[in-house]
């Protein structure tokens, strides 16, 4: 199936879908950690939709990436902030697109430098397949197949609303 740019789903509606998928797990008092940039936007929405007390954590995986030797340091890295104690906490990592799984691997490694969580789950807005590591999501809003040259990008528009954009290399 070819995905046409004008048929992209509503990312804001997908955030609500994702929140509903997570809601049954709230009894474990999970804390959200968004992966920059898209994951942080989504985690902020999930926190509001689910009424979570804890501020969200934010991870920039630049210092943990496995392609440092090829690509060098990302020119714009932002500080990671984890405003709660990771030790023994149920953590939900949040990202926009799950693809190779390498970013998730890096984020899990970074998270463990803050402590030993009770569990780590992964919530993504879109799973586009193409995994290169044994990593899977726990919650998702959208499963989509894309060609290898395609790049699915989550953007925050000037009104602050999330929207998908499809790039073709």
């Amino acid at each position: 199936m070819t995905l046409l740019p004008d048929s992209l789903p509503d990312a804001e509606a997908q955030c609500q879908q994702l929140a509903e998928a997570i809601r049954p797990s709230l009894s474990k008092n999970p804390a959200l950690v968004g992966i920059f940039s898209g994951g942080v936007w989504i985690a902020e929405r999930l926190r509001a939709l689910l009424g979570l007390a804890d501020e969200i954590g934010m991870i920039d995986v630049s210092f943990y990436r496995d392609d440092f030797a090829e690509k060098g340091l990302h020119p714009q890295c932002r500080p990671t902030t984890i405003p709660f104690d990771v030790q023994d906490r149920h953590i939900i990592l949040v990202d926009d697109v799950l693809y190779t799984g390498r970013t998730t691997r890096a984020a899990i490694n970074e998270l463990f430098d803050y402590g030993r969580p009770a569990s780590v789950q992964l919530a993504v807005l879109a799973d586009r397949g193409g995994r290169e590591l044994p990593i899977d999501k726990s919650f998702e809003a959208w499963e989509v197949t894309l060609g290898e040259g395609a790049n699915l990008v989550l953007e925050s528009n000037p009104q602050g609303l999330l929207a998908w954009r499809l790039e073709n290399a």
Binding site: F63, Y64, P75, P79, T80, D113
Partner: peptide
Amino acid sequence: TQILDTAASFMEVSSRDVKKVPL
């Protein structure tokens, strides 16, 4: 500016219990 911005991220690393990244 890139160096100063990157240093800001490393300030956070230095405030952790595990003050180490695998770069």
